[in-house]
Nucleic acid binder design. Structure first.
Length: 574
RNA sequence: GCCGGCGUAGCUCAGUUGGCAGAGCAACUGACUUGUAAUCAGUAGGUCAUUGGUUCGAUUCCGAUCGCCGGCUCCA
């Protein structure tokens, strides 16, 4: 067991990094250097752009400092002294930092020739830092604001010993192999091309097939749970977006207007206004509530070019959107059922570890009655509690229009992703004057809940690819069975098996090429096809199949019936 | 958008004093008839991202643009 927590080790490593950088570039201005989730970084203002070679050199120096086993010591001083000390060191960012900090006592940490303003804590001596590795250099604005100068940020990681560092680096390698952009290309699932534009996805046949399966399952589950499906257009008039408030609050994220017949139209960034108009098409009675409108609605949002990332951050995507419109009395039950519904959907895709984050009313900017906020927050918290799942409360983290639950799922290698969100909206019902006629014959304002489970199909698909490492379960695999012939004489038998499988609804492909069986297996494995049916003379004579399962290997010879039912059974399991 | 890196065949990548553009895989053709992760031979495939400059000559050097990658930022 290490003497210090990782965070302390990493924070200390950040100091050593700064020390090493100052050794080579004495005029460097220091930004901040915290420990982060899987390592640490330090920001520097430097004349020279750092290169890979510089990193190697700096890392070497860091190793030396660690070996020297310098002692970490600390001292405090008041604001005046601290400022003049930093002035003397010519550290303007640190001076700025002190200016913005409360109190009059500032601690410094010193090791060898290096002194840094810092709250600590640190390890006692540098050798306790263990093993370090510098990972990359990138740009970062001082204090995260674009108005400030851009500093150079060096990222690194540290562990208490070499072995753990090696394991971490190995995990990173593994994660890299799962990259959906890489697998998307290898498995021919989708592409994003320069000709179409960044963040606009072309779904290739195999990707589109998987998406179709996801969508079909999604629709079926919604219909079975009393949702109504809607379909709405991709564009709408400017007036609509004025009314919804998007043009005042969200315009910077919208594609610019299209003019048709002297009218301005906008491509939709959200589906809500359309769903609301469906609701408002006819007066609604309390007897009709709750109403649950769901749509796989394709929206377009402007994302800055630098933010685009494979399928995870795109400009055109399909939300699995739904709007639940209900009375105050129905609210609690609706929240509960939508939460359970989300979990069930996510579980079908192998996500069992789910965490909730409840975000409540912001302190200042918010719309609607405080009492409505309180009721809805209680409803959200109730729902999570009743499920007995882990959750955290983010006080004041809600949107201005309502409180929400964000749901995070954990994938096969322990990474967290946010997909689902369940949000109250006190804004749009007001803006669109949504009402229902209550038992008392009066008009009432309904509650409206937005929710998405996958969030975006593009993003969810990207996450799925990484989660499964491209090894889709049988029910989702674009090709479920590949029939491989040992020689060309056997192609008749193979064709017969293929057509029988297809008849049973199994997605089957046939490889009768004049290659050796090893080659065909290698090829099918590369495509990550779950089942390989190897057939030769022996199998034809005995009406059997030699079954091979992807990632498991040879399952041996079985009767055609048994082999078929194995695939069929598995294709039904989610 | 900003900082830095990168852009050579469908894919993965070689290509240095600046002098005819290369390999493996994939594709195609042929031979082989194969028993559990790569059979052999041949053919074809390129505006070296685009564009301007330097030069007798640019994939190579310089500039601009576009795109991608790592971050920052953004995510009412």
């Amino acid at each position: 067991m290490a003497k210090f927590p990782l965070e302390t080790i990493r924070h200390s490593a950040a100091h050593v990094l700064a020390q090493a950088v100052l050794h080579f570039f004495p005029t460097a201005q220091l930004g901040i250097g915290p420990a982060i989730d899987d390592g640490f970084y330090y920001d520097f203002d430097l004349e020279k752009s750092l290169t890979e070679d510089d990193l190697v050199m700096i890392e070497k120096k860091m190793e030396e400092i660690i070996k020297e086993n310098q002692q970490f010591t600390t001292f405090s001083s008041n604001k005046e002294k601290a400022t003049s000390f930093l002035k003397e060191k010519n550290q303007k960012y640190k001076q700025e930092l002190i200016e913005s900090l409360e109190g009059d006592t500032f601690t410094f940490f010193e090791n060898g020739p290096f002194v840094d303003l810092c709250r600590g804590p640190h390890v006692e001596q540098t050798r306790e830092i263990g093993a370090i590795k510098l990972l990359r250099v990138s740009g970062a604005y001082w204090r995260g604001s674009e108005k400030n100068p851009m500093l150079q940020r060096i990222y690194g990681t540290a562990f208490s010993n070499r072995k753990e560092l090696r394991l971490y680096l190995k995990r990173m390698e593994e994660a890299k192999k799962r990259d959906h952009r890489l697998l998307g290309k290898q498995l021919d699932l989708f592409s994003v091309t320069e000709e179409v534009g960044g963040g606009l996805v072309l779904w290739h046949p195999k990707g589109a097939l998987i998406r179709h399966l996801i969508e079909s399952y999604w629709k079926e589950l919604h219909l079975n749970n009393d949702y109504d499906l809607l379909i709405s257009p991709h564009v709408g008039k400017a007036d609509l977006w004025e009314k919804s408030g998007h043009l005042s609050f969200y315009e910077e994220n919208m594609f610019s207007a299209i003019e048709v017949d002297e009218q301005k139209y906008y491509v939709k960034p959200m589906n809500c206004p359309f769903h609301i108009l469906v609701y408002k098409n006819k007066p609604k009675s309390y007897r009709e509530l709750p109403i649950r409108y769901a749509e796989l609605g394709t929206v377009y949002r402007y994302e800055r070019s630098g933010a685009l990332h494979g399928l995870l951050r795109v400009r055109g995507f399909t939300q699995d959107d739904a709007h639940i419109i209900c009375t105050e009395e129905q609210m609690k039950e609706e929240i509960k059922s939508v939460t359970t519904f989300s979990i069930n959907m996510l579980k079908a895709f192998g996500f069992d570890k789910i965490k909730f984050y409840l975000a409540t009313r912001p302190e200042e900017k918010y719309v609607g009655d405080v009492s409505h906020w309180k009721d809805s927050e209680a409803a959200l918290e109730d729902a999570i509690k009743s499920l007995g799942l882990p959750y955290e409360v983010d006080h004041g983290g809600g949107a201005f229009y309502g409180p929400k639950i964000d749901v995070k799922i954990e994938d096969a290698i322990g990474r967290e992703w946010q997909c689902s969100t369940i949000q109250f909206d006190f804004n749009l019902p007001e803006r669109f004057d949504m009402t229902y006629i209550g038992q008392d014959g009066q008009k009432h304002r309904p509650y409206m809940i937005h929710r998405a489970i996958f969030g975006s199909l593009e993003r969810f698909f990207g996450i799925l690819v990484e989660h499964y490492e491209g090894n889709f379960p049988v029910w989702l695999a674009p090709t479920q069975v590949s029939i491989l012939t040992v020689n060309e004489k056997i192609s008749g038998y193979a064709k017969k098996l293929a057509s029988e499988l297809k008849e049973k609804g199994i997605r089957t492909q046939l490889d009768t090429s004049s290659e050796k069986i090893g080659y065909k297996i290698r090829k099918a494995s590369g495509e990550k096809i779950p089942y390989m049916f190897v057939v030769g003379d022996k199998e034809e004579e005995s009406n059997t199949i030699s079954v091979r399962r992807h990632q498991k290997g040879d399952l041996g010879v079985m009767t055609v019936e048994k082999a078929f039912s194995a695939v069929i059974e598995e294709s039904k399991t989610m």
